[in-house]
Design a protein around this nucleic acid. Sequence first.
DNA 1: TCCTAGATAGGGCATTTGTCGTATCGGTTG
DNA 2: CAACCGATACGACAAATGCCCTATCTAGGA
Lengths: 216, 216
Amino acid sequence: MNLKVAIVDDNTFLIHAIKEKLSFFEDVSIKHTSLNGSELLTQLEHNHNLDVILMDIEMPVLDGIETTQMVKQKYPHIKIVMLTAFDNDENIFNAIKAGADGYLLKEINPEDLYNGLQETMNGGAAMNPSIALKTLKLLRNPDSIKNQSDKEEISLSKREVEVLEQLSKGLSYTIIAENLFLSPSTVRKHIENIYKKLQVHSKIEAVQKAKNHNII
Amino acid sequence: MNLKVAIVDDNTFLIHAIKEKLSFFEDVSIKHTSLNGSELLTQLEHNHNLDVILMDIEMPVLDGIETTQMVKQKYPHIKIVMLTAFDNDENIFNAIKAGADGYLLKEINPEDLYNGLQETMNGGAAMNPSIALKTLKLLRNPDSIKNQSDKEEISLSKREVEVLEQLSKGLSYTIIAENLFLSPSTVRKHIENIYKKLQVHSKIEAVQKAKNHNII
DNA sequence: TCCTAGATAGGGCATTTGTCGTATCGGTTG
DNA sequence: CAACCGATACGACAAATGCCCTATCTAGGA
């Protein structure tokens, strides 16, 4: 099995170091490297035949957290392992929330990096022990996690929230209309407006976004 | 450095197996073993000069979760690593809540077990990758913790989980097909099968149910 | 008072989805 | 070996969805 890997890091020297570490392993091939998130996204549009992306966090233009979120949204099949110098709680938690499949530190040795990639492909999560401990602490104490996701204010009307609530249960337009004593046309219109406000294009996306913003 | 270890397991045969695994390493010494929690607590009253306790979960009299809680309360300096056969979400989460410093599976090989102990002593958390992934999912979706009321076993194939993951992002059949290098027909068929297994009839319901069961 | 936002309602249309079929191939297991 | 499951793939069709248009009525803010 050949592991198709991409590396994203704004430091060319570090990209080189990672390449070197992985060069020991024949079944790993570096498909491409990028200096920031938007460069990666462009490359993915051409070719998303990838297994794992090794992603730095601190990067100009589009940082590793946002990039992870966007890549996971469009290409959920690609595993993303954060590979960064810093391991503060905020970064770790945001990376996990963004959908990261693992979190390693740059000081890692070649074998552990390789094992991490393998474990990730086998449906596990690559994590070094100190990171693992931090995730345990986060789980023990969920209050320490503050949601910063609502940076843009989203204001739905009362009626729209009601409709969204019904949407989230998986009900169809006609059923929602019955429940709220409305015409199906009205429900459709409400949903159109909701989509515009949330900037989404489907039920699932709307519900997901609404949940992230604590609207429902 | 000599690692002082205790083993708690109601199965004497398994205690022996763990001892055997650790016998390869000279700097590990098994200080004592117990068949259940209360036996351990009695022993700790006589001697709590211990580094790590390897703790089973399923035990009579006083199970591993409760015991962990009590030991951590009285002797917070002693590290506790769960060593159990089962890795269901409930056990993992409860063990973490109780204060466990790690969570390993009994099938582990000697080296990994030894490394786990070392990492734990170095201020990390011992965890195998599949457990690590489960903790990540729990962090992403804390609601799935409370919602373990209906514990009917749902077994989706690896491929089905992949498809479900893509579904959860709001992607259409055709996009999913592109991402996974499949024909749209195949994606449809997978989704049909997923719906049957989950007993649902729409994307949203499927995603909701999968999240509640910590599948995605 | 005028204007805007929200709630209501309808029509139309291309696309997607959910649900039926059927079928082949490879591996596992009894 | 047979039976079964999972992964693959195609066709058909009704229903649902997403998105565009227009329109009326009401309440509240500029």
